[in-house]
Amino acid sequence: MKVKAGIAKDARLSFDRADLGKVLNLTALKREAQKHAWRYWLPLLGRATGARLEELCQLFTDDIITLQGTPCIRIDDTHKEQKLKNESSRRVLPIHPELIQLGFLSYVENVRLSEAHRLFPDLEARRDQLGHAPSKWFGRYRYKHGVCDPRKTFHSFRHTFIDDLRDAGVQDSLLKRLVGHVDGSMTFGVYGSRIPLEAMLNAITGLDLHITQ
């Protein structure tokens, strides 16, 4: 019983709609971004991509690409500073149109013009993890804004992303590709012409991010 209780206590939960409205409030995020731009973009990216925190923190500007005419984020270990959890983590994700409307591509271009290489250049690794400071910050931030359950962490964006796409009827093999899970039925290359990019974009575009003003 003690083991089961421990597992239940440590299990991460998804965010509900009310939670998302609180942690994805643009006024609050812009206030936080006065100190670090990543405080604005990381929660939005986590919600819109379902990517792991470290995957987002270690992005380089050249990981923002255009594929088949679609702006995308490349999750890869092209640079020596980047690490993947496993081989299936290597993937390409279409960028949600709402992020583009909010100015994400403009932010990327501004970072490029500054001659920085990493997308969030002011992040510093601690314990070999660039996500250490963002994880600690997000814990304080979501608590401050009324999301107090300790099982709701930054990783909850990933759980929520998966739950929402499953509820929307997204095919399991496509969902696994989006979040970087192993799928034995996938026999085509990650960057080949057979990437189901249109289906991926449709799935992501159909996701209501529940961003508030």
Score class of each variant (00 low, 15 high):
residue 118 R to T: 12
residue 58 Q to C: 01
residue 82 Q to N: 12
residue 52 R to D: 08
residue 98 E to T: 12
residue 170 V to G: 04
residue 105 L to R: 02
residue 65 I to G: 07
residue 10 D to N: 11
residue 34 Q to Y: 05
residue 128 D to Q: 12
residue 200 M to F: 03
residue 62 D to E: 15
residue 9 K to D: 10
residue 179 V to Q: 05
residue 176 K to D: 08
residue 153 T to D: 00
residue 210 H to S: 12
residue 162 I to V: 10
residue 67 L to R: 11
residue 212 T to Q: 02
residue 144 K to R: 14
residue 90 R to E: 15
residue 6 G to A: 10
residue 52 R to A: 07
residue 104 F to E: 08
residue 75 I to T: 02
residue 127 R to E: 15
residue 70 T to F: 15
residue 96 H to W: 06
residue 206 G to L: 03
residue 35 K to H: 06
residue 166 R to L: 13
residue 40 Y to E: 00
residue 137 W to P: 02
residue 14 S to V: 00
residue 67 L to Y: 15
residue 156 S to W: 01
residue 170 V to L: 08
residue 32 E to V: 04
residue 206 G to Q: 08
residue 181 H to I: 14
residue 33 A to M: 07
residue 119 L to S: 04
residue 166 R to G: 15
residue 161 F to W: 04
residue 85 K to A: 13
residue 121 P to G: 06
residue 37 A to N: 06
residue 63 D to E: 13
residue 197 L to G: 12
residue 190 V to S: 05
residue 190 V to Y: 09
residue 197 L to Q: 11
residue 123 L to I: 05
residue 76 D to T: 13
residue 83 K to N: 13
residue 66 T to Y: 15
residue 50 G to Y: 02
residue 195 I to D: 10
residue 100 I to V: 12
residue 177 R to I: 03
residue 55 E to Y: 07
residue 53 L to Q: 04
residue 97 P to H: 11
residue 101 Q to T: 10
residue 212 T to G: 00
residue 9 K to Y: 11
residue 15 F to V: 04
residue 71 P to N: 13
residue 145 H to M: 03
residue 1 M to D: 14
residue 69 G to K: 12
residue 137 W to M: 05
residue 18 A to P: 00
residue 126 R to Q: 13
residue 35 K to F: 06
residue 18 A to V: 09
